[in-house]
Design a protein around this nucleic acid. Structure first.
Lengths: 112, 112
DNA sequence: CAGAGGTGCAACTCTGTGGTTGCACAAGTT
DNA sequence: AACTTGTGCAACCACAGAGTTGCACCTCTG
């Protein structure tokens, strides 16, 4: 499923920004919180919190739901796990390829 | 050691850029390769490849070594694994905190 | 020695986006 | 009805960084 790869890339992009990580950190302390609440505990305006939450939501790291007149956001761990798995499998792939090339170099007679 | 956290952040930053991931992908196919060689297989100039390699090196994802008149780069998997572990532990942390809050909400009599 | 291919440095452009402020509107509260 | 607090939209500024081109210098090799 090519969906995974695309999602992982957006997660990486979302996680790349320090402020965004900070937003996540604060948000993770709540079961759910609104942009206004978060902005009070962050060094940036509500508008920016909202924008960052938008990006995070785009990568699946955050979900939102209306509750009365306010919109509550909550952290979502699944994309994190997926991304972790993606990274570690990529590392494994690099290692195995390197081992392969190395072996091939040590006995250049094998097949080709 | 706070080094780990800092490193992870730079890895995330390095991995966030699509072109940089592409550079890594191409580079991973070689045991080691120079910026010039890589640039021929990429849609960007050697200068840019070099800059990206600089960023990647800054995060430890790539190592360089002089070989005669050229500088050879090679992929390094360790930072990838570290980052993967970091992400998955963060996911676990989120989950456990959520479970905790949930349990606390269901029996508000416990202690406080 | 002369040329070809490699590296390093620097100036410059331009798009993306992090950040702000201001305003208009919706929904609870007294 | 008036007030408070929350959301949504839009204009705007400023900086980082992705990308380019050009040039000077090194280092193999014919």
């Amino acid at each position: 499923m090519p969906t995974t790869a695309m999602k992982v890339e957006t997660v990486l992009g979302a996680l790349a920004d320090p402020t965004r990580r900070q937003v996540l950190e604060v948000l993770a302390a709540y079961p759910a919180a609104s942009a206004s609440v978060l902005s009070r505990q962050l060094p940036i305006s509500r508008q920016m919190v909202l924008k960052h939450l938008g990006v995070l939501q785009g990568s699946g790291l955050v979900r939102s739901a209306k509750a009365g007149r306010e919109v509550l956001f909550q952290v979502q761990s699944a994309p994190l796990s997926e991304t972790a798995e993606w990274l570690s499998s990529l590392a494994a792939q690099w290692d195995s390829r390197l081992a392969d090339l190395k072996a091939r170099a040590e006995r250049p007679d094998t097949t080709n």
